[in-house]
Design a protein around this nucleic acid. Structure first.
Lengths: 183, 183
DNA sequence: CTCCAGGTAGACAATTCGGTCTACTTTTCA
DNA sequence: TGAAAAGTAGACCGAATTGTCTACCTGGAG
């Protein structure tokens, strides 16, 4: 694996687990066994590394999500698949996403208050793409249902992290969506 | 106003607007026109000040929420009132809550990764109390509906912050809840 | 063989952090 | 009135921050 990839993987792991501002460059270097000189030859600043970690997580998450909900034969089936996947994530049972600590993009947005910064823009773009993906994988197109699914999913992620009880939250989402689906 | 209250108000304002780790003790002192010695006579550490700011926000938010949803004559009316209030918050039109920058408790939780820390526990307790308050103010008791409202509200707050379009998010929530209410 | 891009290790600079401490001033109230 | 309590301004400490720089090493390509 390239040094650049090593740095991005380590940075993502540490930034996600502890928060961006809680992790210093030196900790990333120590954990990735890369020299500081090498880091700054690949990235101009810590913010650039954060941006790269966000992009890395974005790619991983989108393909994880798509592989979990694609080829559903009904809207209801897609919902079942989606929230079953979220439950695994909340339980930290999915090796692709690692130990659950909420949404990396929400967490990072909370740490960077300027909405025009590249980091905030990347977080915004991620959410836009996730919403699009959900809409695209409803076999029977229904933008309003996609909005509801998306909002419940966002609520589920933050509540699962805050309360620690992901199973309960997933049940509540599925129960809420029960009445809304016309298979 | 007491010095202690000045410190809590200023800390809350700055921590909420910029994030806890982004604001140093010295910035709080400068903005509150209080001496460092005085701060440390009231609070043992920065974490204690953060905890006090969380408690302060908790009280403000709970009473704001209650005053906005109390004495509804139907579940539907309560939902309308709740999301109308959220829309004002998202627009930063409500002087009680100040300029909107997402949920202070979600944001702060994102910055403190240890779920057993007093700060994380305070954030968890806040969400529990908000959920209880919502359930208590549904005239026709319905725990399942209260769960749905809570999760949509959480999704609405994070999405309104991330995307910046609070009005759209509120419309989506109300539309989603349309089908679920038996007045 | 030589050259050089790309790597390592880590000292270093400049700044900021949370927190302590001294010295002095103001307020409170018995 | 006078002493205790509470406040101010800011120097200072040790640690940690991001980012630069020197000095050295390594593995291929020409």
């Amino acid at each position: 694996m390239s040094k650049r990839q090593q740095l991005m993987d380590t940075a993502l792991e540490l930034f996600y687990r502890h928060g961006v501002r809680a992790i210093g460059i030196n900790e990333v270097l120590k954990a990735s066994t890369v020299a500081k000189r090498t880091l700054y030859s690949h990235f101009d600043s810590k913010d650039e590394l954060v941006l790269a970690a966000l992009q890395c997580r974005h790619d991983t998450f989108l393909s994880w999500l798509e592989s979990n909900i694609e080829q559903s034969s009904s809207n209801d089936e897609m919902i079942q698949k989606l929230f079953a996947a979220l439950r695994r994530w909340f339980r930290s049972d999915d090796p692709t996403l690692g130990a659950f600590r909420g949404c990396f993009f929400i967490n990072t947005s909370a740490e960077f208050s300027d909405p025009d910064s590249p980091i905030s823009q990347a977080c915004r773009a991620h959410k836009r793409d996730v919403r699009k993906l959900i809409g695209r994988h409803l076999p029977r197109a229904d933008e309003s249902l996609a909005d509801t699914i998306f909002l419940l999913k966002e609520g589920a992620i933050t509540t699962a992290y805050l309360t620690g009880d992901g199973d309960q939250v997933v049940e509540q989402c599925l129960s809420a969506l029960q009445g809304l689906v016309s298979t």
